[in-house]
Simulated assay, not measured.
Amino acid sequence: MTEVRHNWTTEEISEIYHSPLLDLIYRSATIHRENKDYSEVQISSLISIKTGGCPEDCAYCPQAARYNTGVDVQALMPKDQVLAAAQKAKAGGASRLCMGAAWREVRDNRDFDKVIEMVKEVNAMDMEVCCTLGMLTESQAQRLADAGLYAYNHNLDTSEDDYKRIITTRTYDERLQTLEHVRKAKITVCSGGIIGLGETTEDRISMLKTLSNLPKHPESVPINALVPIKGTPLAEQPRVSVWDMVRMIATAKIVMPQSVIRLSAGRTEMSTIEQAFCFMAGANSIFAGEKLLTTPNPSFNDDMAMLELLGLKPREAFKNGRPNQKVEEVVA
């Protein structure tokens, strides 16, 4: 098995990223196939449980209150609707449900209490539960862990040097601090980034260096292609080349060989052939369902047809076991 390292240098990652494309894909595919379950793809479904009105200024995000993007502000979704969406996702083949709320940070209030109940009940459906709710304190992370949360998503988005160009309302260190709180609570970490923000290749390499040199690699690393949204500062950004996505996925797989690399936002713009290259390079997770929070996404049926064509199969929930979490009894 390939050695798992936490001391990658910028020069080493750059050499990998810039290697001839077919050599890069071959190297990452070889590492990917060391895992006997390489043909399995984790299917996740992402729903927005609280939409719009976010005080942050993330330059790519249609849910920021300061941008006029046509996204209607909606209060926290009722639990019954969330559970119905979870059942639909599970029936469609998803083994993980990710619930996203357009918050800057979690607040200890009734809305968070309601999210805790959602986590308990989706967990009781034998689905891996993931949340992306913004910044977390240690005690909030522990509450989520006690409720049965399997994963927490908190992306780095870009490099530390590039970060202030994209977001000014929170710091890079605050993002890393939230990841520390998630780790301490024994929740699995989902953290990656976005390409196509106008960043340099060096920024991409720097972001991968930060992720791969964490004390423990994220269990899941989403690689997103920017979906430019009218009304945001990045609305006019050109579409990222699929080969840039393949390079990022392959490099991420080489430097974080045991992490699940997720082919995330931007798949609607990709053909089946282009997605096949991403899977070959090491991607073994996707989001399925019509929407990714507020942006379009391929349907479950289309994705299942693609996986069948490529000889891939959905991965079961809790393939690597459940984290050491106390799950309280679900109250109906």
Rank of each mutant, 00 (worst) to 15 (best):
T132I: 02
K291Q: 12
T158H: 04
Q42D: 13
A145R: 15
A75H: 14
G100A: 15
A235I: 00
E105K: 15
A147F: 13
D244V: 02
D113T: 08
A86S: 15
S159I: 11
H18F: 10
Y67V: 08
E329Q: 12
D72E: 15
N123P: 03
E274M: 07
I16Y: 04
S95Q: 11
A332H: 13
D111L: 06
A101T: 15
E219C: 03
T132A: 01
G321D: 11
S220P: 04
V327H: 05
T2V: 11
I261H: 03
I194P: 02
F112P: 11
A59S: 15
N35M: 00
V106S: 09
G266N: 06
G92I: 05
Q177R: 15
L97E: 09
T51R: 12
T10R: 03
N324P: 09
I116A: 05
M270K: 08
A64R: 06
C61T: 03
T30W: 11
R33I: 03
D162C: 09
F300G: 01
L234P: 12
L208I: 07
L263C: 13
G282C: 05
I254D: 00
T158A: 05
A29P: 00
S95Y: 08
Q140G: 14
P238E: 14
N297E: 07
P298F: 08
G70Y: 10
I31W: 01
L211F: 02
T268A: 06
V330E: 02
Y17D: 07
S45E: 01
L149S: 10
Y67L: 07
A64Y: 01
T137P: 06
D37S: 12
C98K: 05
T188H: 06
A185V: 01
R5W: 03
A86M: 14
T201S: 14
L312V: 08
S299Q: 09
G134I: 11
T210F: 02
M304P: 01
G100L: 13
E202G: 10
K319S: 11
A59P: 05
N35H: 10
M245Q: 10
V227L: 04
P20D: 10
V115Q: 08
D157P: 07
V129T: 14
N153I: 01
F112R: 06
T272E: 10
A85L: 13
A102S: 15
R247Q: 04
D23Y: 00
V4G: 00
A64H: 02
A283V: 07
I49Q: 09
R143L: 15
G282R: 01
N213I: 11
E34F: 09
T188A: 03
M248I: 04
A276G: 12
I167L: 13
M127R: 09
H181Q: 14
I229Q: 14
D173A: 15
A235V: 00
D302F: 02
A84Q: 15
L136V: 13
Q63S: 12
L197W: 05
L21I: 15
A124L: 13
I116E: 08
F300A: 02
I49C: 08
T232E: 06
R170N: 14
K120V: 08
P55W: 09
L22W: 10
M99K: 11
L309V: 11
R27Y: 00
